[in-house]
Design a protein around this nucleic acid. Structure first.
Lengths: 137, 137
DNA sequence: CCTCGTGACTTGCATTTTGCAAGTTATCCG
DNA sequence: CGGATAACTTGCAAAATGCAAGTCACGAGG
């Protein structure tokens, strides 16, 4: 019924110290290539962002408009993570008002092959799917 | 926060096997085939389970042994979800002591094509990856 | 009989991540 | 000046994750 042993865990709030500004070693769960992609894009949104960039979307608001309706805070977070992972780049395409555009790197563009196969699988095995017209994505 | 039945949660012997009597409408976020796979396997563990089943693992404990060390509660949950999604099947391969084995359906087996491309992408773009020997997974 | 071990899970609980709504900052437009 | 965009932040409740431990059958050994 109970683990009773409450074994001291960190007191939240009191220790103003562990802000994890430490080593940047981004620790891989395993040497498996599948686990490696999942470490960086293993969530419900990242690959949709990649899909939209492949489809030619490039600004924050364009990315928000897709039918899945990603929340703004998650989009901001995913863009940061994917940039850090070298999958996309963020560049100001104009200043005065500064506006940013997001574009895939070569590494990111090659995820197209992954998405292609995913599309083929889903079309075969899931009812009611349909692709965005032009790019087959 | 585990909203369901906060107070009494302690009838072990007679309880139903964690059934979640929810509506069966499995709500898709969008008609996009990519979103559809993500709805069912868009997390850090599901595809690793599929990988291991493709590699011939089949029991609960075998699946626990992979290098990524999935927690037992998550493995139980993922097996349930993947079964519900028609990607794998759970069958007792012996009774007296009843033991279960998990195997991929045809739908699940065809995820191999997705994983193949993921492996190719990761080997090209992520340092330090290496595949499990025999099956290229 | 009693204990130990194994397989397949469940349960408790703290930490993290999500998702919604609203707020913010800067800049243009009329 | 009063909006309207663009690109984000922030607050916070709810859900998911992850660890450790507990449970429920058997089955073998003493």
């Amino acid at each position: 019924m109970q683990a009773t042993n409450k074994t001291r865990r960190k007191r939240p709030g009191t220790s103003r110290r562990g802000k994890r500004a430490t080593v940047q070693i981004h620790h891989l769960r395993s040497p498996c290539p599948i686990a490696n992609l999942l470490d960086v894009a293993g969530d419900k949104w990242s690959l949709l962002v990649v899909r939209d960039l492949l489809r030619g979307r490039s600004t924050f608001n364009q990315l928000l408009e897709s039918p899945e309706k990603i929340p703004t805070n998650l989009l901001a977070d995913r863009l940061k993570r994917l940039e850090k992972a070298g999958i996309l780049m963020r560049t100001p395409y104009q200043k005065r008002p500064v506006r940013y555009s997001y574009t895939l790197t070569q590494k990111g563009k090659e995820l197209q092959h992954v998405l292609d196969v995913v599309v083929r699988w889903s079309k075969k095995h899931i009812a009611g799917v349909q692709t965005f017209t032009d790019l087959n994505l």
